[in-house]
Nucleic acid binder design. Structure first.
Ligand code: FES
Ligand code: FES
Lengths: 132, 132
DNA sequence: ATAAAACCGGACTAATATAGTCGTATTTAA
DNA sequence: TTAAATACGACTATATTAGTCCGGTTTTAT
């Protein structure tokens, strides 16, 4: 019902690891082996983080990842929006034309939207550094 | 990532409808037809609500459902726990013996648990009557 | 140069969770 | 006794998530 995906967990673990590595570059394999995360899956996650400018990458035989921004400046909400497919908590009942099925006076949608907002606010106040 | 299930939505719509019907019993078919909800699916949802003593049912040819408790005394969290399969937001990495894979100093699990708690608190403060 | 190891990205498959269906029993008013 | 309703459990279908595979590009030690 409300559950973070494995991908988000993998991202947090990786950021923690890379952060601890300091200036040394971290290879995907380092993380994938240490925490038993599938290599190819993890690779794609880190690639996304690079696009979002959370990580910096260097290619080549000695390549790998380092942090690109400070973790206390990145809210969890940003990580979530990069990793997860932006699905809304409210996917209420409507027909093809997006009209509410409880005609005229639907009182369900609004309170649900509110809950969504409150939840997102929580995510905004948590910084990645809180997890490291 | 965080999304209520259709079932929860169906439950809210039903409670709203049954509440508006007052003392008259409401049949599953009434709701299912009016809001285009699959009959059999809805039936099972209402059965669960009966078990939880949110609804009262009468069997037989003139049977149906009425409210069993006041909606302003039922928090959304209760409805969620009845409808959804209690999945936790935190399903962190651990081996078979439930030991964290980030040995010794896992800092990921706790903040995630906190988020879970904050979210659940939101659900506790919303009463079903807020949706009706 | 070349091999190796990384990064990149799309298409594919597998596993899981959600949504919905079906068959059958039980109750009860008419 | 029959029709219409709840009640229950097993089943199937669909959608989402997790993970795999493959072909490619870039970099660098040798
Ligand atoms: S939009 Fe959700 S029931 Fe009205
Ligand atoms: S328990 Fe989740 S990574 Fe430690």
């Amino acid at each position: 019902m409300v559950k973070f995906s494995k991908k988000l967990e993998y991202a947090l673990i990786s950021l923690r690891h890379i952060s601890n590595a300091g200036d040394e570059v971290t290879r995907v394999r380092d993380i994938s082996e240490k925490y038993s995360i599938p290599h190819d899956l993890l690779a794609k996650i880190l690639q996304k983080l690079k696009k979002e400018n959370i990580l910096a990458s260097s290619q080549g035989i000695n390549g790998g990842y380092t942090l690109s921004r400070k973790l206390d400046e990145i809210p969890l909400s940003e990580l979530v929006s990069v990793i997860e497919n932006g699905t809304s908590i409210v996917e209420c009942m409507h027909d093809e034309d997006n009209n509410c099925l409880i005609n005229d006076s639907c009182t369900i949608k609004d309170p649900l939207s509110k809950i969504q907002n409150e939840f997102e606010n929580i995510l905004k106040t948590k910084m990645i550094s809180d997890f490291v």
